[in-house]
């Protein structure tokens, strides 16, 4: 059996780096790990999905519909979009942030502001974290991803890893302090 995590967001939010840090930690803990990403057109404001699977032995690198144990959404509507991938009984960790796509900006589509409520009713296990807000308070919205990582790590119970060391090695030197603070806040915020 593997644990399957789908991280989803908007190009530029740092889902790939987050997945990479988590993968490294899991590999160090002795798990077999596979991470899969699709990029190419994603830098330009599109949806980005990265997928992480770990366990004793992992075969397929990608997660099919109904196969994800956890969805980590860096943007609210992306949690909704990724919902078909969540298995019954799975959980969601999401930022409350809303980023409007071009059809919303131009008024061709409506943004479902109440998606969070429906997701909570439907799925139950939904942890909402103001990760962007926390990161902004700390000085850079870019630390949002590491804040969400903190929450995810708490939920997964991965306490044996030296996260401070790993994060420090993974983010740009100038942003280490902000990212470490963001991780801590995310960790503390999560249930």
């Amino acid at each position: 059996m593997t644990t399957n995590i789908l991280l989803t967001g908007v190009g530029g939010q740092g889902t790939i780096l987050t997945t990479k840090i988590l993968s490294t930690a899991l590999a160090q803990l002795g798990y077999d790990v596979k991470m899969s990403e699709i990029h190419g057109m994603s830098q330009r404001g599109g949806t980005v999905n990265t997928q992480l699977k770990y366990g004793e032995k992992v075969y397929a690198p990608n997660i099919g519909e109904g196969e994800a144990d956890i969805i980590v959404a860096f943007e609210k509507v992306e949690a909704l979009r990724a919902l078909p991938y969540l298995k019954k009984g799975g959980s969601i960790v999401m930022d409350e942030r809303e980023i409007y796509s071009m059809p919303v900006l131009t008024g061709d589509a409506a943004y479902p502001h109440d998606a969070e409520k429906e997701l909570k009713e439907l799925v139950g296990k939904v942890t909402v974290i103001p990760a962007s807000k926390i990161a902004e308070e700390l000085g850079s919205i870019k630390a949002q991803n590491i804040c969400l990582l903190g929450a995810l790590v708490k939920q997964l119970g991965l306490n044996e890893t030296d996260w401070e060391k790993l994060i420090s090695e993974s983010v740009p030197a100038k942003t280490i302090d902000i990212n470490l603070a963001a991780f801590k806040r995310g960790y503390e915020y999560a249930e």
């Binding site: 057109m41 330009r44 949806t47 509507v77 909704l80 979009r81 919902l83 589509a109 998606a115």
Partner: peptide, 11 residues
């Protein structure tokens, strides 16, 4: 879910 996620095409 009943709510529909608006498309997010790359731009």
């Amino acid at each position: 879910a009943e709510a529909q996620a608006p498309a997010r095409p790359p731009v």
